[in-house]
Design a protein around this nucleic acid. Structure first.
Length: 449
DNA sequence: TTTTGAGTTGTTCGA
DNA sequence: GTCGAACAACTCAAA
């Protein structure tokens, strides 16, 4: 007697451990593991693509070479594969981003036409987007109340995954791994093992000081797990299960919640991927002409003349990652010192970030731009000199990425133009205090006061 | 029902 | 140098 196999469709969950959909698939029968290289992915950033391909190779190794890589549109590929191996069920985690939801609905429909079904269980989140609601059933627009409810909703313990029996069928051939795109950035190791190693290292060395050191880019004080969370090499549930209620560990938990909050906001309002969450901000005057493009170019290259901004941009391009504090500083600079659309910065980030996640990235940008969920006022404008002095007090971070500053005295390292003729660095492209006033004036024009 | 207080991440100014 | 106030506006929940 032979039973028909099931298909496990991997997407943003490139791991075998603590994988709810896989545990369900493995309990249902022999499993054909597939990953579909959707042409839509090829337009995303090269570092992220390279990282994902490396993660896929590792996943394939972990399952003894059973992973079937297929190329094409999942709407066509998944139903064809299910049909050719006689699978009646395709297991996959839920995706809550706009493109993924649309794609999954269409795949489910195509499967149904063949008498098969898409069984979606689990997601990349501890609490699935759409779950946390206010008393009246509407979603939250502010983080803190969301966070409180999110914690009371809670999440399951990590899932045990029984060792699956992988199917290798002559009817479905692996179409092979594509070549990695050209990527000069030095990326972290892409494997579930590497994710857990990093979690162990962070837990031992930094987690209990996290509250105090998380904002310092010159210190290895953040988890750096974002690339792993992005591709599901680790599930947040696995991390949450290890956390206690001390101030630092609770704060790390709240950072994991930010990721879930933004996913929730985007789930409820998919239009806010590239549009302002707050429509009133559509009236904000922005610069988009030739001069604006020139300034944007300087920002991208890390040549604004403000060391903390430029160091951040160099780190991004060199490593595919930027410290969170610095992300806020460079974003504030683009929006409030250069008066450029946040979308320009968000797009550049998405091209370069290994952890680029459309919900976290774009809503993080909206938060800084004052067009999003910010419960704080618009006049909160970062001063790049003050931020540098506060969070990189020794100048270690800026010197790491800007060798021209190697010999500049620490008290000048965040404002080398004060050295006058002796400034070894490029001159600032704008005057912060002037642009700050300009931003506040433009904001006043929006509010009409 | 209305009021009240608090809200990730800040800066500047004047005492 | 340190401190508190002012900077604006809206969400949300508790009183």
């Amino acid at each position: 007697m032979t039973t028909s196999p099931v298909v496990m469709w991997f997407r943003r969950d490139l791991r075998l451990a603590d994988n709810e959909a896989l545990s369900r698939a493995a309990a249902s029968g022999e499993v054909l593991p597939v990953f579909v290289l959707d042409p839509t992915f090829t337009v995303s950033g090269a570092p992220r693509m390279a990282f994902m391909l490396r993660a896929l190779r590792k996943l394939d190794q972990e399952m003894g070479g059973a992973l079937v890589i297929l190329h094409g549109d999942p709407r066509e590929v998944i139903p064809r594969v299910a049909k050719s191996v006689g699978a009646r069920e395709v297991f996959a985690a839920r995706d809550f981003a706009p493109y993924g939801m649309k794609r999954d609905a269409e795949v489910a429909k195509a499967l149904q036409a063949n008498g098969a079904s898409l069984v979606q269980c689990g997601s990349a989140y501890a609490v699935e987007p759409g779950t946390v609601r206010k008393g009246d059933g509407t979603p939250y627009a502010v983080f803190t109340p969301f966070y409180k409810v999110w914690q009371t909703v809670g999440w399951p313990k990590p899932f045990d995954v029984p060792k699956p029996t992988w199917v290798q069928s002559p009817k479905v051939q692996c179409e092979g791994f594509p070549d990695e795109p050209e990527c000069s950035a030095t990326l972290p190791e892409a494997s579930a093992k590497a994710a857990m190693n990093r979690w162990d290292e962070f837990s031992e060395k930094a987690l209990d000081r996290y509250y105090d050191i998380r904002n310092n880019p010159d210190v290895d004080g953040t988890s750096m797990l974002s690339p792993y969370l992005r591709f599901g090499l680790v599930h947040p549930r696995t991390l949450l299960a290890d956390l206690n209620d001390t101030k630092s560990q609770a704060h790390y938990r709240s950072e994991l919640c930010w990721r879930e909050f933004y996913a929730d906001v985007l789930f409820h309002q998919p239009r806010t991927t590239w549009e302002n969450l707050q429509p009133k901000m559509n009236a904000m005057k922005l610069d988009t002409g030739a001069k604006a493009k020139q300034r944007f170019d300087a920002w991208c290259k890390g040549e604004t003349g403000y060391p903390i901004v430029d160091a951040g941009m160099k780190q991004l391009v060199a490593t595919g990652w930027m410290h969170n504090r610095v992300r806020m500083i460079v974003a504030s600079f683009l929006v409030k010192d250069l008066h450029l659309p946040w979308q320009w910065g968000a797009r550049f980030f998405m091209r370069h970030l290994v952890d680029g996640d459309i919900a976290s990235n774009n809503h993080g940008w909206q938060w800084t731009a004052g067009t999003g969920t910010d419960a704080a006022p618009y006049f909160r404008i970062f001063n790049p000199v003050a931020q540098g002095e506060k969070f990189d007090p020794q100048g270690t971070y800026v010197r790491t990425w800007l060798p021209q500053l190697a010999d500049v005295a620490t008290n000048m390292v965040h404002q080398p133009w004060e050295l006058g003729m002796l400034n070894p660095y490029v001159a600032p492209i704008v005057d912060h205090s002037v642009e700050r006033d300009e931003s506040l004036a433009r904001y006043k024009a929006v509010t009409g006061k």
